[in-house]
Amino acid sequence: MPRVIIPSLLQAVTDGAREVTAEGETVGQALASLTQRYPAAESRLFQEDGALRPHVNLFVNDEDIRFLGGLDTPVGENDEILIIPAMAGGA
């Protein structure tokens, strides 16, 4: 099952967990299983219309999902999903 790496700003709503094992065959399904387990994470990650918040960046094995298949990117047994804020860097 894919692992989701939780940034510290979300750990308050994941009972302090830094890493969560998720269910699902796509990034979207894995996040759905995460928010099912930790309902408070839902509004942090998604807008009211269900779209991912614009400043939430997701990576599968270090690749930005926007270069892959977005939330439909398939994830397998040993894949790592990284959630990080779209933040920082540069001028």
Binding site: I5, P7, S8, F59, D62, D64, L82, I84, P85, M87, A88, G89, G90
Partner: peptide, 26 residues
């Protein structure tokens, strides 16, 4: 690339509490 460097640094800042000037001191 720089974007890879940046992603790593966000994780280090998150874990170590260092003063990353363009991340947590941004």
């Amino acid at each position: 690339t720089y974007d890879d460097v940046n992603r790593l640094c966000i994780q280090i800042a998150d874990r170590y509490g260092w003063g990353f000037v363009n991340i947590n001191l941004r």
